[in-house]
Design a protein around this nucleic acid. Sequence first.
RNA 1: GGCGGCGUACCCAAGUGGUUAAGGGAGAGGUCUGCAAAACCUCCAUGCAUCGGUUCGAAUCCGAUCGCCGCCUCCA
Length: 475
Amino acid sequence: MPFHIFNTLSRTVEEFTPQNPPEVTLYSCGPTVYLPQHLGNFRTFLCWDFLKRALKFDGYRVRQVMNITDVGHLTSDEDAGEDKIEKTARAEGKSPLEVANHYTELFLADWDRLNMERPERFSRATEHIAEMIALIEKIIAAGYAYVTKSGVYFDVEKYRGENRFGRLSRQSLDEQHAGNRLEHSPDKHNPHDFALWVLNQPNHILQWPTPWGPGYPGWHIECSAMAMKYLGETIDIHTGGMDHIPIHHENEIAQSESATHKPFVRYFVHSAFLVGKTGAKISKSAGKFPLLSDLPGAGIDPLAFRIFCFSAKYRSELVFSDDGLRAAQGNLDYFREFSRNVPPEAAAPGAETPGWAADYYERFHEALDNDLNTPQALAVALDLVAESYRRKDFGAWPTLIALDAVLGLELSRYRETALGATISADAQKLMDERAEARRSRNFQQADELRKQLETMGYEVKDNRDGGAEYRRRQV
RNA sequence: GGCGGCGUACCCAAGUGGUUAAGGGAGAGGUCUGCAAAACCUCCAUGCAUCGGUUCGAAUCCGAUCGCCGCCUCCA
């Protein structure tokens, strides 16, 4: 079965075909770096990591670009708003650049902890000002934008005349207008027009010279400019959170297509939110939000959060809970335990894979091809391990490693580290003492020694024959 | 007010017209064990918010009702 994915443009699951197979161009909306990225943000980014790995599993070569927004997003759409990065900068007594750099570093560190593949390129908005200006000039030349004192605005009314606006959100402008409670800049020809470039805001710290005067970019133009620069005028897949459908992506399409007269995106893919117990989404503006760095203290490995997200479909809201995280941690431990139990001969290069394992590979593959059904794929992977235990046949190890290319748990590396761990002389002494205690049936002392070893970071597993296995616990 | 989505067991979560409603976690029992741990086995929704309708057949389609949430301001 070829890869299938839900395309927001058609609101149906479609067979996926890239423009130039086997290459796939993928643009993913990234973070604005004025605060730490919370777990809700990472849920979305993980979805795209799963997508990318699934495409590669299918044999595609994926070229992914993700923006890092380090300027421009205002606290409101109107020019009266405050730049979020500048707001943090003022609060922390730093420059906007320092703020952006700091939160970018945090973001990338967490990214790596979740074992997400880095995009082929992270692109920063402030490093692509020239491209944005060039694109805006193109839009003006095409007659879809106009220059005023307060900014360069996109002419939605003109674009709408071609009946192309609102394709994504299925919402007419008049409907949007019905509940609009914002004040509009008097320079706009129409309330729906949005800023491509903001002018005459002297209080804004970051300013760049342009043909229209100094100013800074509007909050949609960077994505169009950078996506087209690195991936071409028509990209295969554009991803983002659900919240981007009605405004951000709608406007991206409008400004891009009015400049190129070509389709901007072939498949729009959107993810649902991570939500709290009440069903309300976890968001930055809510004030309090969970971070990746909160998890280790609760005994949750970052890779367990990876599994947690893998256990729900990208298009379904996922309820964030301690129970859910613990369940995922249990799955991670299960995979890891199995990895350590695989005997060397089954892990040797060229080891033969039993026929029964092929079926699991196929089922895993099919689940992913079916609109990225990661929970089903996870069920297959878990069952592969269970079946191995049932058959007492560890020959499926290479198959599990193949699935791990998408799961992203680095089980092979884990196994090597775990088996290569050395036992300290102190611990070895206790182990010897414990063996002696068990031989003389002094179980009270044996249990005492086990407790000591466990606090030292060793796992103790007694065998039936009176022997025991000691393993250093991996972190 | 407009637009969109959701409601599957104690919790999380697949399934969206057709044999017995995946899987995980929790719980109960069992095998094994000096005890643990690990692993495996068994049990755990005649029912999918409620009520109607369409159909040979519905969790799945249609309608109504109730409840929850998102978007229309920045947000993954």
